[in-house]
Design a protein around this nucleic acid. Structure first.
Lengths: 225, 225
DNA sequence: TAGATTGTTAATCGATTAACAATC
DNA sequence: TAGATTGTTAATCGATTAACAATC
């Protein structure tokens, strides 16, 4: 029934950014924009922006460009699901707590509804507004709450077993902050954010920047479904 | 004088991972490995691994595979610079503090030597072992210490001005946790880690995973110099 | 109309994958 | 030797970029 073409992952990634940039412009009272304006904000080319908007089936007019409010709506149609995504976080250390504090503020569509830890001192209380449970009742809570996404902020050595429990509990997507790749079944989506590696890469490229041609100063983030 | 070919950014990214995986194997007493073993750990193909190692000029033998210790040394030759990279972090909130705590542990080659904040209550003391200064003395401290990399963990609205001060102080690479793209001169390298966007992408793909073919379950991270 | 911008196709680019002879 | 693995080239794939006619 769904006849929409599959949208490339890179396009989706840019769409998330476009949506935020557009919302910002809209809040400042701007009604329309041209492809090159959005391109400048997102740091890519106007041709790229035009192609991206074409891909999601939104068109502008040669005179006025694109209508910001409609465009945001169209992007939201693509990106946002009808219901909130409920998220569980495992590992309430410094990083885990920082993420909980971040999501205390409004993130429409995304809500961390439960945190878990092995440390008895951290559980059975709220951390930045999020209830924190002992890891033993993980499966039970996940199913009970209907959680679909997981965030892993445990030490590397425990990342895989945490992921396994998430998969077994029916979680469909995992964001992993531990510096190890996870082995997961094909139907589970995952992404890894590795701060130390990001710094190592940055150190490498910043040292050699002069060797590279101009205009290539950004480290991009690839991604695919 | 430097006749080495430019190594693609994707290859460097994988190299960082290989190095860590190999160090782990070495510590377990393993001496050699085959391309398909490293491929399984890093979640890519053996052909890819062979090509990567060829790219950095390290060869194995058909019978024994690759010598782990030598390979780590070769990767370190490529990745690591002769001296430590000194890092400054701006924005000692929850996320900033979490990053400081993370780098308290050994990260050879990478050291956060100064943190900065506007909040008088946070400065002039140590946070997880890192001295925290008022933002007013930023330029002075950066030059004095010889800092080359910067981490931005301030709110989005202050990210660009923070980046501008970093660039003006001679910082060569910036890791930006604020959810806005930075405008930077070409000679400054930068990468952005956007946790909310990562979750949005994850939500999108996890919902549509069944539409995609098997084996595409990971979101990759692109990047270039 | 004139001119800037859009939609869309074709050309380019680069990275990944496949294939296979060379090697130990 | 036989067989698995390496080094390396060619084919594939996909995304980006360039180009330009159509449009307002």
């Amino acid at each position: 029934m769904n006849l929409e073409k599959e949208i490339p992952a890179r396009t989706i990634e840019r769409m998330v950014l476009y949506k935020r940039l557009l919302a910002d412009l809209l809040s400042k009272g701007q009604k329309t924009l041209f492809s090159h304006q959005l391109a400048a904000l997102a740091h890519n080319t106007s041709a790229q922006v035009r192609r991206d908007l074409m891909t999601i089936g939104y068109g502008g007019s040669p005179r006025k460009g694109y209508h910001i409010e409609e465009l945001i709506e169209r992007i939201s149609d693509i990106l946002d699901s009808s219901s909130d995504h409920l998220i569980a976080l495992v590992g309430v250390g410094n990083l885990g707590s920082a993420i909980l504090s971040y999501f205390t503020y409004s993130h429409p569509g995304l809500k961390i509804v439960a945190a878990f830890d092995t440390d008895a001192g951290k559980v059975n209380r709220e951390v930045f507004g999020c209830p924190c449970f002992p890891i033993d009742c993980f499966e039970e809570k996940i199913r009970q709450l209907g959680v679909t996404l997981g965030i892993i902020t445990v030490p590397a050595a425990f990342a895989q077993e945490t992921a396994d429990r998430m998969v077994a509990s029916g979680i469909k997507g995992i964001l992993n902050f531990a510096p190890v790749p996870l082995k997961l079944p094909d139907h589970v989506c995952n992404d890894r954010i590795d701060i130390a590696s990001a710094l190592e890469k940055l150190a490498y490229f910043s040292e050699r920047m002069s060797q590279f041609s101009a205009g290539k100063a950004n480290i991009e983030h690839p991604q695919h479904p």
